[in-house]
Amino acid sequence: MFYDLNVPWSIKEPDLQRTLAFLSELGYGVVALTYTLSGKLPADLTSPIPTTLPFPTPSKLNVLRRCTLILSDPSQNHRISSLAATYDILAIRPTDERTLQQACQSLDCDIISLDLTQRLGYHFKFKMLSQAIERGVRFEICYAPGVTATDSGARRNLISNATQLIRATRGRGLVISSEAKKALGCRGPWDVVNLAAVWGLGQERGREAVSKEARSVVVTAQIKRTSFRGVVDVVYGGEKPDSTKKEARVKNGLGKRTADAISNGTDSAVEGSKPISKRQKKKLDHEAQMAAKKASTSESTNLLGTVPPREASTAG
């Protein structure tokens, strides 16, 4: 199963249906439609991509929804958690080194997608990138802008940056996707693997970048959203118990009352026959003993109190 996690989406896109059909034809199994957000976030964060697309998609193709957030100001609050909840995958596109650092260290996203067709004014550092990879965030290389570029500048930058990225990440934690605006920009998965091999990523690593790593992005993103603390997910909760019988009983006026009676009876029975613990017994015994003692002593004092006058009287 091959993954292409970046297919740009816009409202007026007559070519999208064709692009999806073509990707399916090339052998991809999972595709993510990308909606790009930049600058100040709107108040309404709901995804504009409909869950069911208005045209037929190939039956073998699984379509996900992804959001790419362009990060230009590190101090701005991006409401990432609420944004992440409305999409299947959240990607971040840092524009400079500071935002890249922020994205690597702290931001809770699934993919860091740099614009590799630009000339970046900084070098990638393994330390910074490995922080992100350890957290489970993947780096994305988009090949379509380089493949379809008419000017050689974009292609040159893409190759340069991609090799830099491969070097800095040591080939780990990379995802390769298309970002193809038209079907013409898409390439078959094995062609992409070969392209990455030419750029210095090993054949196996390249294959993982379009299959295993991309899958891990999808699965971790899903488990982050649906599961309990990202650890436990209910895959199949079992069927609900058959409630029809119970209802019938209640209608007869039998069910609940008998149940109540039984529960009351058992409750009282339990209370009545509750065995006393040893400690309790000891305590009770002790109390009884003390009480008896007290009573006897008071009696004796009484006796003593009453006796002396008598003694005195007898003595006197």
Partner: peptide
């Protein structure tokens, strides 16, 4: 062969 393959991939 990878050079040829890459060139084919970049054909539009």
């Amino acid at each position: 062969y990878r050079l040829v393959w890459a060139a084919l991939t970049c054909t539009t």
